[in-house]
C-alpha cells in the first residue's frame, strides 16, 4: 500500500472518515438543539486524555470512557431541577479544568496538549486511520439501524412512546455515538473544533434539504468538500490543517445562507 505512505493521502482519508460519521450525527445534534452537548463531550475528553496518559492506557479508551460517563451523568441528572445547559456547562468546564490540572501532574511524559486541543491531522498514522474508519463505520451503522426510531423521538418523545419507542434509549444511543465520534476525531480536528465539524456541515445543508435524509446526505457532501479543500489550502498556505478545514466549512455555511436568503427573496 504505497498510497498510504503519503501523509496527505492519510490525512485526507482520516478527515473523510470523521466527516462520514460526524455529518449525519451533526444533523441530530442540530435538530435536537444539542449543540452544547457536542462541546461538552469534547471538553470532557481532555480529562480522558489526561487519565489515559496517567494510567498508560490508550487515549481512545480514556476519551471514550470519560465522554460516556459524562453522557450518562447528564441524562441521569437531567430534569431534576437543573436545566440541561447548566448541567452541561458544569460538567464541561469542570472536566476540562480537572483534565488540565491532571495533565500538569504527569511527569516523565512530555504532553503536547496543543495536539489534542487543535488536532494534528497530518500526523495520522495507519493505526489511527484504522481506528477512525472503524469508529466512523460503527457510528454510521448505529445511526442507520436506529434511524427511524431516532428521528421519531427527535420529533416528539410522546409520539415515540406511543409507537413503542423509548425516547430515553434513543437519547442514550445518540450520546454513545457522540462520544465515539469525539474520541476518534480528536486526532483530526482536536477537542476545540470537533463541535464545529458536527454542527457546521449540518447547518449549511439545512436550506437545501426537504427531508431529513437529504439533509444528512448534503451535510456529508459539504463536510467532504471542506476536508478536501481544507487540506489543500492548509498545504498551500502552510496554515494549521484542522482549523483550515473548519474555516472552509464556515465559508460554505455562509455561502449557503446567502443563497438561501437570495432564493427566499427571489432576487
Amino acid at each position: 500500500m504505497t498510497l498510504l505512505d503519503d501523509f496527505m493521502v492519510r490525512s485526507t482519508l482520516a478527515g473523510l472518515g470523521v466527516v462520514l460519521a460526524a455529518a449525519p450525527l451533526g444533523c441530530f445534534v442540530v435538530w435536537r438543539r444539542m449543540a452544547y452537548f457536542g462541546d461538552a463531550t469534547a471538553h470532557a475528553s481532555i480529562l480522558g486524555v489526561a487519565l489515559a496518559l496517567a494510567f498508560n492506557v490508550s487515549i481512545l479508551g480514556g476519551v471514550l470512557s470519560v465522554a460516556l460517563i459524562m453522557a450518562l451523568t447528564v441524562s441521569a441528572l437531567g430534569g431534576r431541577g437543573y436545566a440541561m445547559d447548566t448541567l452541561l456547562g458544569v460538567m464541561a468546564h469542570s472536566s476540562l479544568a480537572f483534565g488540565l490540572v491532571a495533565v500538569s501532574f504527569i511527569d516523565g511524559v512530555r504532553v503536547d496538549l496543543m495536539a489534542y486541543l487543535f488536532g494534528d491531522i497530518l500526523a495520522v498514522g495507519r493505526v489511527d486511520l484504522l481506528v477512525i474508519w472503524g469508529g466512523a463505520a460503527l457510528v454510521l451503522l448505529l445511526l442507520l439501524a436506529r434511524w427511524s426510531a431516532l428521528l421519531t423521538s427527535t420529533l416528539n418523545p410522546d409520539l415515540a412512546s406511543a409507537a413503542g419507542i423509548s425516547p430515553r434509549r434513543e437519547q442514550l444511543i445518540l450520546s454513545l455515538a457522540l462520544a465515539m465520534v469525539v474520541a476518534v476525531a480528536i486526532k483530526v480536528v482536536g477537542v476545540l473544533l470537533i463541535a464545529a465539524m458536527l454542527l457546521i456541515p449540518a447547518a449549511a445543508a439545512r436550506p437545501f434539504a426537504r427531508t431529513p435524509e437529504r439533509m444528512a446526505l448534503i451535510a456529508v457532501v459539504i463536510g467532504a468538500v471542506s476536508v478536501l479543500s481544507g487540506i489543500q489550502l492548509a498545504f498551500q498556505f502552510d496554515s494549521p490543517t484542522g482549523p483550515t478545514i473548519v474555516c472552509v466549512a464556515a465559508v460554505l455555511f455562509c455561502a449557503a445562507s446567502v443563497m438561501d436568503f437570495l432564493r427566499a427573496n427571489r432576487i
Partner: peptide, 12 residues
C-alpha cells in the same frame, strides 16, 4: 398529541 413543536431546523 396536544402540541407538536417541530423544530424549524428539521426539514420534513
Amino acid at each position: 398529541p396536544q402540541k407538536l413543536h417541530i423544530d424549524p431546523t428539521l426539514p420534513l
